[in-house]
Amino acid sequence: MLQVISLLLENKPGALLRVTGLLSARGYNIESLTVARTLDPELSRMTIVVDVDPALRSQVIKQMNKLINVLQAVDLTETPSVCRDMVLVRVRTVQESRTAVLKEAEIFGARVISSAVDGFVLEASGAPEKLEEFIQVMRSYGESDVTRAGTVAMSLETKKLRLQPPVPTRADAKLEQTNGVLNA
């Protein structure tokens, strides 16, 4: 089964690579990945769908949470959450099927983005499995090209964000060094 991971991370060069690097270093293939800025422009929200051995899922989340640029990584696979995907489908169709295509599009709540004599470009969004059906239906009408946006997910629970408060630099740290690590 696929794992859905939602991450809140700093919007910095290399941050994306650190997250995906954790997966590729372990040989996991990413099924989909979306990332975009949040309300706070210094942060990004990322959703990753990835095929990870169930026994190793919590390890992957822990490793992601260790990344300095990651504020929070959460496994949404088995928690209350919503997942949506978006797809653009360009379907080439003969004159006689145009009405039927539009009718099907309506059933799936898809919108026509572009219309031409040889077919349409349709936009649909919804649960990933629903879009799968939509794509299959459209392909039955003729040659289709598909671009999927990837899954975006949102937890239905608010998970407390644990952030590190600012700390003084060394010369200003009067007490024993941070965490007793520097016990020279």
Binding site: L9, E10, K66, I68, N69, L71, Q72, R162, Q164, P166
Partner: peptide
């Protein structure tokens, strides 16, 4: 001061 909000 150092502020690394994501460093836990």
């Amino acid at each position: 001061t150092i502020h690394l909000p994501g460093y836990k």
